[in-house]
Design a protein around this nucleic acid. Structure first.
Lengths: 220, 220
DNA sequence: TATACTTTCGGTACATTTTCGGTATTGATG
DNA sequence: CATCAATACCGAAAATGTACCGAAAGTATA
């Protein structure tokens, strides 16, 4: 299909674009190959275009682009049009340290009905791990092992009775949030069939923070 | 596609907004680039807007905002740049009817290391349901309940010994594929610690089809 | 209304792409 | 072997696009 030189040029454009976020100018390509005329590169680009390996606009600088790969990005845009949102799944709650709010820790992008997720941003999902909340009810669903809890991370000042993702001493947990009327103390409840999960009273010295509210459940 | 300068301006706006929670004024952008006329910046903003990289309100101070669209496709391209692919997760194998190869049934987009997925297309994931393959070993991993099997759907002519996603009478199953040397018959094996799973001999009348080969496992 | 911003206008300099006519090299083919 | 076709390359000029300017006019808002 492609000649050796054409492939070299295409590879260079691909690499350059990946590194810099924008495509090179013809002259930059010329320099890279230590040629003397931009006309040469221009010809290669024209060949690549006619063979379908490259898209470009007339007379526009840095307008080279690789033809779309049909598959994934197509599906993505379709899903967001059709009543679903894609929210990042950030591992398990009730499990590891709460350092997981980093991009590297996105396991997957979960399709969630728009009936649950109405906002555009600030939403993520965590996997429910264990039985500590299996009697909690969110929109009629309880939170069982393996389910996904959908979290609104922009809701950080919970009211008594809210279900939240709480981080205490670096550990993330799904809990019911209660505030003692008199003392103002925060109490975290496990709503579980398993009596070993006791309420936790948060003292002011604790390294404590609410990471968001549970706004829905996706059953496994 | 953006020009170099346009990209610089967009990057500055993105950073500034992230840091300050509010977008910059045109004059602040001008200062940052040490230019002498706000008209220049104004032009860049107009270009960015017309290319869909920026939303803004007329005559409103600090009304620049990044369109929501960009986030997902950004993540996609980022994830593919950083050693991962996003593959659609199409429900459970060993479970329902094999009608799930439809777009509506995508549950999520799973991040999978490029060490497993080397191709651009034709890859999807299914959830392993049950213990029927828990003694199978794929790259040293066995297939336990809740794991994800990564399938290459463009590999439809398996060799004896391959692990495959097979569909028989409308039911999808993960199996080991064997072909009888003499008769040419196809036999599907469950590699399980549970002896109740018996080998299945496929007769030519069966509605039978190989949907792809298991190329990897993502442990849960 | 004062002032802080945004928008519009006309114009310059420079950067980049496109076009044109032409040479050199290679490999296949009658 | 001569020839043809395809590829790779060149230099220079023409055409187009991009980045920038200063000044003035228009809008939002305290």
């Amino acid at each position: 299909m492609l000649t050796k030189r054409q492939k070299q040029v295409l590879d260079f454009i691909t690499e350059y674009s990946r590194k810099n976020g924008i495509s090179p100018t013809i002259d930059e390509i010329r320099k890279h190959f230590r040629l003397n005329s931009v006309a040469t590169i221009h010809q290669h680009l024209e060949s690549l275009r006619s063979k379908g390996y490259l898209d470009r606009l007339k007379n526009k600088t840095r307008s080279l682009s690789l033809p779309k790969k049909r598959s994934v990005s197509d599906l993505i845009s379709k899903s967001s049009r059709s009543g679903f949102a894609l929210v990042p799944l950030l591992g398990s709650a009730n499990a590891g340290p709460a350092t997981f709010f980093a991009e590297e820790n996105i396991e997957a992008y979960q399709k969630v009905p728009r009936t649950i997720v109405r906002k555009q941003s600030g939403i993520f999902a965590v996997r429910v791990d264990g039985d500590s909340m299996n009697k909690a009810s969110i929109d009629g669903n309880n939170l069982e092992d393996g389910d996904l809890a959908i979290i609104d991370s922009e809701y950080k000042s919970p009211k008594s009775g809210d279900y939240v993702l709480a981080v205490r001493d670096g550990l993330a947990n799904l809990k019911k949030f209660l505030r003692d009327q008199k003392t103002g103390d925060v109490i975290l409840i496990s709503e579980s069939s398993n009596p070993k999960h006791k309420p936790i009273k948060v003292s002011s010295e604790d390294d404590f923070m609410i990471n968001g509210r549970i706004i829905g459940v996706v059953k496994r």
